[in-house]
Structures are given as C-alpha cells and as structure tokens.
C-alpha cells in the first residue's frame, strides 16, 4: 500500500438482504416507534430474507406476522404512520399490489396532499420485485413504472448492498411514504443465486444515501446506459464485454425513480451523445419512455441516438425460453448498444 489512509478501507461484505436488515435493526433500536408488518416476516424471516434475524431481537410485537389481508395491514400502516409511528409494511411480491392498492395510492400516497400537508405518512412499503426464475405472470413483475407514475410516494430501487443500507436508513427516517422495491435475484438468498455485484463492502455504522441521486456504477465515454435494479449488473457485464470491442459504456444506476436524478443522466448523455435505457418493467408508458422523454426535453441537441430495452408489452410467461425472450438479457443490452452505433 502506497499510503496509509486515515480510515481503513471497509472490507466487510454483506449480501443485499443482510444490508437491508442491518439498517432496519439499527432504526428499530434507535426508535421504539419503528415496527415491521408482513406475511411470514416473523418466524420465516421473510420469504426473500428481508427480515432474517429480526424476530430474535425484537419479538413478535415489533416483527409482526399479519393475516393475508393486504388492504387491512397496509392500510393499518398508513393509519399508524398518521398517528406518528414509523411502520414498515411488506408486500410479499409487488404483484399482489392489486389487493391493497387503494390503501397504497388513494390513502398512503395522497393523504399528505389532500390534507394540504397537515397530515403526513412516515411509512415504508417494502416489496420484492422481479423475474428470471420462471414464476410466471403473477409473481415476476417489477411494476417500477406503476408506482413511479402515481404521485405522492418516493420509489427506491437498490442494486447493491451498500446502496440498500443507506437507502433504507433514509427511507425509515423520511417523513413521507417510501416504496422500497428490492429485487429477489439481488438479495443473496441461498436458493436464488445472485449475480456478482450486489454483494459489496458495507460500513458497520449507519449512513444515509439521499433520494434522487443516481450513481454512475461504471464510467464510460461512448454510450450511456441508464438502468436500475438487477439490470445494473447486467449492464455492467455488457459494458465489460463491449469494452473488449472498444466500446466504452457508462452505466448509470438510478437508485430512486421518485425523485429522479435527471441531472446525472443529462451530464452523461452530454458526454456520450448516445442513450440506452434498460428496464425490467413493461415497455410502454414506463421508465424507459420517461427517461428518454426527459433527456429529449432538456437536451435534445446532445442526443444523437436512442434505444430502449424493456419487457415487451406482454405478461411475463412461465416457460424458460419464453421468459428469457421477454426479460432483457446481457446480450440484449450489448445488441441495443451496438444498434445505435458509437
């Protein structure tokens, strides 16, 4: 080592689920008013490890298994939040949002505005998103665009353990409702192997990451790839391969959809002139369209070429060849980059 840093580099690596849980546990220790409600979050520890180990420390009163009644318990989180507590409610799969959606978008998301901000809703709605494991149309969606479209909730999508922890601290402390969407494939669950990437060094102490600050996960000069969640890792992999062909891709991880860091995207596009947006949600009326529209509105002059890659407008099919066809793969990202030249 050339020089002695004042602070030692952090080498403690955590899976994304461990990092999330660490932030939740910290907040629960610091504030009695934080509690967690969801199906199978107590003894099971969350189907996707979102609450592993919390029951042992906090007990059933604060890590609450609830009936399969999404309307009731998500709505109860809204009410408890309005009473000043800081509930975290988990929707096991985002696909189940339909069951409790009124509480989410007509109550949780609107009560602040409708009350002229005399009421506020300091809660977090955590939910598992994503496909790639053949769970078919009712258990594989990301629905990023659906939640981001409806005003009144912040929407967080971490892609690494480091980000997951800092974003979770910020989410729980936020005085407004935050939807925290974690991708199953990134959690580091034993039975669903994660790609390389989401497991990162994570500081032991607490830290917050501001919403609305995208992170350039790989710097590049030739093309900007904007993405989120699982596809950050697919984009980085694509970029490494493209580098061998002399194409230098920059990968921008949005980290939050609401608020959206348009600035970082514009800076990158101003440099590269080429924009590829990659999303695991449906193509139409979604994240890809929004990003392209913002860049077109703000800096059309820099935009030499555009491509977007998302799930074509079909429900997610079950069979492996069909699912592989519709969820953007690393190869598809490379093709999209190549298709707009450089």
């Amino acid at each position: 080592m050339a020089q002695q840093d004042s602070a030692q580099a952090i080498d403690r690596e955590l899976t994304m689920s461990r990092a999330m849980v660490e932030a939740i546990a910290d907040e629960m220790r610091a504030d009695e008013e934080v509690f967690y409600m969801g199906e199978d979050v107590a003894d099971y520890g969350g189907i996707f490890d979102s609450t592993q180990g919390l029951l042992e420390e906090f007990g059933h009163d604060r890590i609450m298994d609830v009936p399969i009644s999404e309307t009731a318990y998500i709505g109860a989180a809204v009410g408890a939040a309005q009473a000043g507590m800081r509930p975290i409610a988990e929707l096991m799969f985002v696909d189940f949002f339909g069951v409790g959606m009124d509480q989410i978008y007509n109550q949780m998301a609107k009560n602040t505005y409708m009350s002229g901000a005399s009421v506020n809703v300091p809660m977090v709605l955590t939910t598992a998103v994503g496909g790639t494991y053949n769970d078919a149309a009712q258990h594989s969606q990301t629905l990023y665009g659906t939640f981001a479209h409806l005003p009144g909730m912040k929407v967080v999508v971490p892609s690494t353990a480091y980000d997951a922890k800092g974003l979770m601290h910020n989410a729980i402390r936020d005085d407004d409702p935050v939807v925290y969407m974690f991708h199953k494939r990134l959690m580091g669950i034993g039975w669903m192997p994660a790609p390389d990437g989401p497991k990162t060094p994570v500081p032991e102490e607490e830290y917050t990451i501001p919403f609305g600050s995208a992170d350039v996960k790989r710097e590049g000069e030739d093309v900007t790839v904007v993405t989120l969640g699982l596809h950050v890792h697919r984009a980085i992999e694509a970029a490494e391969d493209l580098a061998e062909d002399g194409i230098d891709a920059e990968v921008v991880d949005l980290r939050t959809l609401v608020p959206l860091d348009t600035e970082t995207i514009l800076e990158s596009v101003a440099k590269t002139g080429r924009l590829v947006v990659v999303d695991e949600d449906y193509r139409s009326y979604g994240v890809t369209s929004e990003i392209v529209a913002r860049v077109a509105e703000e800096d059309l002059a820099s935009l030499e070429a555009v491509s977007r890659l998302a799930v074509p407008d079909v429900p997610i099919p079950y069979a492996r060849p069909l699912e592989n066809e519709v969820i953007p793969a690393t190869e598809d990202i490379k093709d999209a980059v190549r298709s707009i030249g450089s």
Binding site: D135, A136, Q138, Y318, L322
Partner: peptide, 21 residues
C-alpha cells in the same frame, strides 16, 4: 407454457386457478 403450475386453465372442464390468494 405461458401459465405454469399456478395458472392452469382447462376450459373443457371449466377449471382455472390463480396464484393470488
């Protein structure tokens, strides 16, 4: 191959299922 085990439909015998509780 579009449905999988939680989404079986057989209109011949009027059978259907859903994975949402």
């Amino acid at each position: 191959g579009k449905g999988g085990h939680m989404h079986l439909f057989d209109p011949e015998v009027n059978f259907a299922c859903s994975g949402i509780i």
